[in-house]
Each structure stands twice: as C-alpha cells, then as structure tokens.
Simulated scan of single mutants.
Amino acid sequence: MNTDTQQKIEGKEHFHGSDLEKIEKYFGIPKEQITGFGANVNPLGISDKMRKGLKEHIDVVTTYPDPEYTELRKHISDYTGCRPEEVLVGNGCTELISLFIQINHPKKALIVSPTYSEYEREVRLNGGEVDYYALQESNDFQLDVKDFCNTLEREGADLCVICNPNNPTSTATAPSEMRKILSRCRELGIFVMIDETYAEFAPVSTSISSVGLLSEFENFTIMRGISKFFAAPGLRLGYAMTSNLTLLQKIQEDKNPWTINSLAEVAGAYMFHDQEYINRTRDLISSERKRIYEELKTWKHVKVYEPHANFILVRILKEGVTSYDVFVHCIKRGLMLRDCSTFPGLEDETFFRFCFMMPEKNTELLECLREILE
C-alpha cells in the first residue's frame, strides 16, 4: 500500500455499503477486488431465470410498459400472498417511502432507531418533525412493544416507521407483537410504515412478515424491494402493500406514470416465481447465519445479537479497538464491512455490521476479524 493511501487510512472517513467507487478512490484498492460485506445483497447474484428472461425479452424497451402494471402486481400478489389490488409498484423503495410520506404529510413521525436514514430525510423534506424511539442495547435491541405503545400515546405522532427486520440490528418483531402496535396506532389515528426489505431473509420457521395483517388493518403499509433478496438494485423496482385502497388510489392519481421501466416489469414475471432460486437463497443465508452467530458467540471480545436478516450486528468489547479500526483492518484485505458509528444511537464506535456472503468468503472475514479482535 502506498504512502498516500496509508496517510488517508490514518484519517477517518465513513462509507456506506454501496460506496465501492469511493473506497477505490480513497484507499487505492480496485473495486473489483473488494467483497462488499456492507451492502446486504444476496451473494448468489440475480436469478438465472430472470437473466434468461431479460435476454429473451430485451425488445420490450421499444414499448411503454402497462401504466397499471397489472401483470407485475399479479406476480407480486402470488409471491407475497396479498391481493393484487393491494399492491403499488414504484421506482425502488425510496420512491414509495417518499410517495406515502407526501400523501400522509405527517406533522410528526416516530421512528424506531437505530435505522435507515431515508425515513427521517423524507419526513423533514415534507415539513414534518422527527422523534426517535431508541432500541436498547440492554434489551439486545429487541423492541419493547408495551413501552413503545405507551410512547406512541405520549409523543403525539401521526406516523410511525418500523424497519422489520431492522437495519442495522437484524432484530425482528413477530406479527403477534406487530398486531398490538397496529391496534394501538389505529386507536390513536397513527399511520404505520413497515419496511420489510429484509423480511424474505428471515428464518422460514419464524415468519416475521406483517402481510397476514393486511386483512385486519388499513392503517399501515408494507414496503419491500428487490435490491437485497433478488440482488437487483439496478432495476429500481420496489413495491408497497396496503389494504387502504382509498389511499392507494390517491397515490396512483398523484404519482408520475411509468416510473417502472419495461425490463423491471419483465423481471418480475421470472424472479418472483423462481422457487429454486428463492429456496437456495434461504438455505444459504439460514446456514451461514447460524454458523457465524454460533461462532461469534464464543469470542471473548465481542458481543453479538441474534440475527433475523442476512446480516449481523457486532459490538466490540476489546479495549482500544474501534469500529473504524476494524473497518480499516478488513478493507486492507479487500473485505468491506459497515462501520455503524454513523447510525443514531451507535455513535460510540463499538459497533459494526456485515452481511453473509458465500461460505468461503465468510470464513475469510471471520479469520480477518479474529486477528484484530481475538
């Protein structure tokens, strides 16, 4: 490593999971040589059926997509178990988060944290205030539902945002507990946004999705995308599910047409029905999640929290070692994890997060972490 690069490493710069170009420039490491443990993307890559389908239907770019996206919504309905009329598609989850916040125009939002920063950004852009409900490390970052419901009443919020499983803690709230939250929010006139970006990675035996609650409650929406589980962030396809059809109709009337391109529309016909790919993904993540969690639990100088998504949060207990130290130690080997000190509530520089890649790469990362932490 050259002198300039070493001097840059001695400073502090924070990087997100998709900042490979920035890493390349900052550290002088070709991005092709970096394994992105910070991006939380399925290590299998895209579905083979989808790849083949896109090649065979490349000519769809010569026509406009169906403005109602009828077939695409049907595929999503088949995949998730909701009704087609309860589905709204958008240009990634980011657009959908923005649309729902614009329409609901919350005066005050209560966001469960630490979590994804886009929620706060959108609320503030629309003139709303933001308060955080902090998950407690003493409770292993599990949501205390009873206390949370009491807080909702005190805060006077009209929007509640919950990421489930949560990023970066990888903790999850069961549907039975989410029902209590939705019921209390309905009594208080609060709309709930549940981000299930990582729900498909959760253990099959422990379903955490709230899709089954759509028939009971109209005061919430579920957000999902294809960037992580289906490894296709470049297609920019997201979808929301809600049984509040009046709200959906209003959003449809206000949103721009054709925000989903023709290729993304075609992709849905293949990836949502590629059961072999879906099963392989779940088996891989389930196996590696268990292996890595059990391994890290034996280490003296770290604390880990039981993961439900495709990533794990780790707390450093070794004196004199920070999350930035760990990040730099790993990036020198071309292994990029996430320093979590930029997340509200994790600023003490003792937390880092990494996702589960292929087994051999996961083992390589564990060996690298052992060098600095054990």
Rank of each mutant, 00 (worst) to 15 (best):
N2L: 10
K8E: 14
E10H: 13
I23G: 01
E32L: 05
Q33Y: 09
G36R: 11
G36Y: 05
R51E: 10
K52Q: 10
Y64W: 11
P67Q: 00
L72M: 00
R73C: 01
K74I: 13
H75I: 05
H75Q: 10
S77C: 04
G81R: 04
P84Y: 09
E85I: 12
V89T: 08
G92K: 01
L96W: 02
I97P: 06
I101S: 05
Q102Y: 07
A109R: 03
E120K: 12
G128W: 03
G128T: 05
S138R: 12
N139Y: 07
L143M: 08
D147C: 08
T151A: 13
E155M: 14
C160D: 15
I162L: 05
N167P: 13
S183H: 14
S183G: 14
C185S: 12
L188Q: 10
V192K: 01
V192W: 07
T197Q: 10
Y198K: 03
T206R: 14
S207W: 04
V211N: 06
G212D: 03
L213E: 00
L214G: 06
F220A: 07
G225C: 13
I226T: 14
F229I: 00
A231M: 04
P233D: 08
Y239E: 05
T246C: 15
I251K: 01
E253I: 10
D254Y: 14
T259K: 08
T259Q: 08
I260P: 00
A267C: 04
M271V: 08
Q275K: 11
N279A: 15
N279F: 15
R280K: 09
R282N: 00
S286A: 02
E294G: 13
E294M: 14
W299L: 06
K300S: 15
K303V: 06
K303A: 07
H308F: 09
A309S: 09
K318I: 06
H329Y: 08
C330T: 02
R333T: 12
L337S: 03
S341A: 12
G345E: 05
D348A: 00
T350K: 15
R353W: 10
R353F: 09
F354Q: 01
C355K: 02
F356C: 11
P359S: 02
E360G: 11
N362Q: 02
T363F: 04
C368V: 03
C368Y: 02
R370T: 08
I372H: 04
E374S: 09
